Amino acid sequence: MLVAVACVGLWQFGLAGPSLSHGPVLSVSGAYLDDDRPPTMTIDVEIHNEGSRAETVEAVGRSAPGMHLEKVGFEPGFPTKLAPGKRLLVELRYAITDCALAAREALAVPVRVRRWMGAVTVDARDDSHESGAWQNHPISTTCDEQL
C-alpha cells in the first residue's frame, strides 16, 4: 500500500512523469479560408506545468477524426522549457475535413515532453471545469453552415 501511494505521489508531482494540464480554451474561432479548402477553426490554449520540475515541451496537439491539425503556433517555437508553475500559450489550427466524423466528446490536448529517458506524450488534463467539449461550438456552427 505504501509503495502504491509513493508511486502515485511521484507521478502527481511530475517526478515519475510530466504533470501537465490545460485551462479553459481561451478563444475559438471558425472560418472558411475559401471555397476550395475545408473550413478551419483555431483555438488558443494554455498548457500549465503542475509538476515540480521543468519540462522540455517538443510538441502540442494532434489530428482527430474529421479534424486535421494544420498548424501549431507558438513563439519562439519548439522545443521550449516550461518551468514548474509556468504556462505557455499555444494556437492550434484545425481543418474540419468531415462533419460527420468530427469528435463531439472532449478532445484531449496531447503534449510531447523530452526527458532524460526519452520522449513521452501525455494528455494535458482539462482543469477548466467547463461542461461540454471545447470544439463543439465551432464544429456545430461550421457544419450547420455547410448544410
Rank of each mutant, 00 (worst) to 15 (best):
residue 66 G to V: 00
residue 35 D to V: 15
residue 56 T to F: 10
residue 55 E to G: 01
residue 51 G to M: 10
residue 54 A to G: 01
residue 53 R to E: 12
residue 38 P to E: 09
residue 49 N to E: 04
residue 68 H to P: 03
residue 70 E to N: 10
residue 50 E to Q: 12
residue 65 P to W: 09
residue 33 L to C: 12
residue 41 M to S: 11
residue 33 L to Y: 14
residue 37 R to F: 12
residue 32 Y to C: 00
residue 40 T to F: 12
residue 65 P to Y: 09
residue 42 T to L: 14
residue 54 A to E: 14
residue 65 P to Q: 13
residue 39 P to H: 15
residue 59 A to I: 03
residue 62 R to S: 08
residue 54 A to F: 00
residue 59 A to E: 07
residue 70 E to D: 11
residue 65 P to H: 09
residue 58 E to K: 13
residue 60 V to M: 03
residue 56 T to I: 12
residue 65 P to R: 11
residue 36 D to S: 14
residue 61 G to V: 05
residue 47 I to K: 02
residue 58 E to C: 08
residue 66 G to I: 07
residue 57 V to Q: 02
residue 48 H to F: 06
residue 36 D to P: 06
residue 60 V to F: 05
residue 57 V to L: 07
residue 52 S to Q: 10
residue 58 E to D: 06
residue 70 E to P: 01
residue 50 E to Y: 05
residue 36 D to M: 13
residue 34 D to M: 15
residue 48 H to D: 08
residue 59 A to N: 05
residue 45 V to K: 02
residue 33 L to M: 12
residue 48 H to L: 11
residue 34 D to N: 15
residue 56 T to L: 13
residue 45 V to D: 12
residue 62 R to C: 03
residue 60 V to D: 02
residue 48 H to C: 08
residue 60 V to Y: 03
residue 58 E to Q: 10
residue 61 G to Q: 04
residue 62 R to W: 01
residue 40 T to E: 13
residue 42 T to K: 11
residue 56 T to M: 14
residue 43 I to E: 02
residue 51 G to F: 00
residue 61 G to F: 00
residue 66 G to N: 02
residue 48 H to A: 07
residue 59 A to G: 06
residue 35 D to W: 14
residue 45 V to A: 07
residue 41 M to K: 10
residue 58 E to N: 08
residue 64 A to E: 05
residue 36 D to G: 13
